[in-house]
Design a protein around this nucleic acid. Structure first.
Lengths: 204, 204, 204, 204
DNA sequence: GATGAATGAGACTTCATTCAT
DNA sequence: GATGAATGAAGTCTCATTCAT
């Protein structure tokens, strides 16, 4: 006769955390792809493999869930950008690597897409707006500034206002990631080489 | 008691058509800015200066309205692109003008934004999907092909696969127009000059 | 052939106001009898003779509806108490009349019941709490103070702390109204005479 | 590995009964304070120091639990009233003591509060309604009748219909206990002396 | 013909109740 | 036996669509 024993507390906590991760991952994806209003709690639940009601044992509301994700996205996007300094090669090569990496990894794109939705959606929780004001692109630009200054001095990058250059690059990257067009044979995303032309400056 | 002379049939038809145009214009704008789900019928009615009920005298449903607009957007985007041949100057200058024009004119952007929404929304009417498959970017690329071949031969444009180059440019343009981020001092949209670097090719 | 003409604007406004009154009256009753949580929007809608969705054309949310009613109840309860000075007779007779009137008129009781629910319910909107703090019983006591002083000096009322006496009377009145027990042959509400014994003081 | 000696059957039954009592006590309090709908099973479980699931090993449903409590409350309220004959002094003093005791002891109030909720809630199980009809206030009045007759004959109590007098007193008591208003400096509960004026009759 | 009021389907959220562990 | 995770029904709220006036 098999005796069924309750899980130990440790097991419970582990399970709970893994559940929570499931939800966060699912929500990350669904919110990134569909935005605040387009994402339905039922979609997130399905993506996470549970019922909608369960979400509320982990997050008080759709708003709180979204806010949590934005916090995480802000963090991850910053870390993703900081990563650029670990990449090998000259500034040009670093940036090139970075762009390639971001464009090829869905997971790397979600944070940027999420932040974009947070900027453009209609009824964003006010905590999110505060977050966005504090950790805006400005921060990302600041992070990249030394690298671009170095690149510019080395003659690898276009001359002109550096901050503007970085901002334009980031905007284009975000725009492309957000664009989210189902790629077919016709629609072709610009590749990293093309984007690097913006960074490097034109022949003309 | 005021006696109103009845309108002739022709006048009636005219009035009806002008009414319909009001609706289409309003819907164009609202759908372009807010997407299929974000746009509420009541918003469109208000933008058009009509009651919500009126919309249904011209379109059977929100879906039909959206479908109609997509048809028109496909048409207008094509016409917008054809316009490029009327612009003065070399191929490079033509493309530069075109990009500048599109980026500075809200109205010119609506068709592209609308098509983007049609591509990314989830519950798009199937007629719309058919339309998008038939009149895809492929068509736009075909239209621009001669111009870009000329530019390439003149050495103004980057070497390499032309179709890919055009596709990338169009995608970027759409992406930027769709990006729709509230511009602040931090977020800076790339300008036409920067985009032209993609077309012109890099120094490297 | 009968020509159906739209209502004039004036008619529309009238209809809208009458609708609103219907809702307010229904909500007043349902909230008074069942409290904030016990009252379902569908019950209010049914009592008002319309569908639940309609309520939202007049009030943004259940909370706003409740808050509006509390404002009105605070007003009405105060006016109801001020009314006591219009009643004929000595202070004792005035108070007696007042108690009788309140206990016999359902409508006169709703404001007090509503305020009671506002005090005791769980998730009261914060505007309501503010209101209750500003226009609390203190105000009612202040209003009745002159009358009770007069009655006490005339020897009609019990000696002792007047404010306490008034407060106790009001509390008992509220408690009785709120008690809301279905009256049967067994349960007998105390009548005005009995309550007046509290006011008048005991023989002992 | 720790070996636990199995409990004897008697011990098991004892444990089970103590468990059940925990639940009943917790539920008594929570239902008394919050009513049928305001009380959540999870609150009762927490108050009892158990998991929500456990409740269902003792009671089939919230309704059954509530019904059980009402049965007990009816019993306890009757016993509480019978207690009055054990109190010292004249009828007046007995009643005064009783009122003081009830007003000062939360635990003594729960049965009355519970019965009140049973009377006023909307979706009360029908068994409860039957119970309330069978063991209504009538019973309480019958119990107190001899005492009040004695008091009346002794001239301590007001003249008039005794049953009505008792009923009014009980109703007032219940109402006050149920009133449950957060006491502040403004709201002042009537005290036992004031209530005794109802019993004793007025000077007038 | 026009208006905006009314309905009903669907999304968010809570909680009694069941059930895997 | 116990726990707390999972479900589903019900309530609040929104909006496309219909319809009385």
């Amino acid at each position: 006769m098999k005796r069924v024993t309750p899980l130990t507390e440790e097991q419970l906590i582990k399970r709970r955390e893994s559940r929570r991760k499931q939800i966060v991952d699912a929500a990350f994806k669904v919110f990134a792809l569909r935005g605040l209003n387009g994402a339905k709690m039922s979609m997130i639940a399905e993506e996470a493999g549970l019922s909608a009601g369960q979400l509320y044992r982990f997050f008080e509301s759709k708003e709180e869930l979204f806010t949590t994700l934005i916090q995480q996205a802000v963090l991850e996007s910053t870390q993703g950008i900081e990563m650029i300094y670990q990449l090998p090669g000259s500034p040009f090569e670093k940036v090139h690597h970075f762009i390639s990496y971001v464009m090829e990894n869905k997971d790397a794109q979600y944070p940027f897409m999420l932040i974009h939705h947070a900027h453009t959606a209609d009824d964003v929780p006010k905590e999110v707006n505060q977050l966005l004001q504090q950790f805006s692109v400005k921060r990302h630009i600041d992070l990249l500034l030394p690298l671009f200054e170095e690149g510019q001095q080395a003659g690898e990058f276009a001359q002109g206002d550096i901050r503007q250059l970085i901002s334009a690059l980031l905007t284009m990257l975000s725009a492309i990631m957000t664009f989210n067009m189902p790629i077919d044979n016709d629609h072709q995303m610009p590749d990293a080489d093309m984007l690097m032309r913006i960074v490097a400056g034109s022949r003309k």
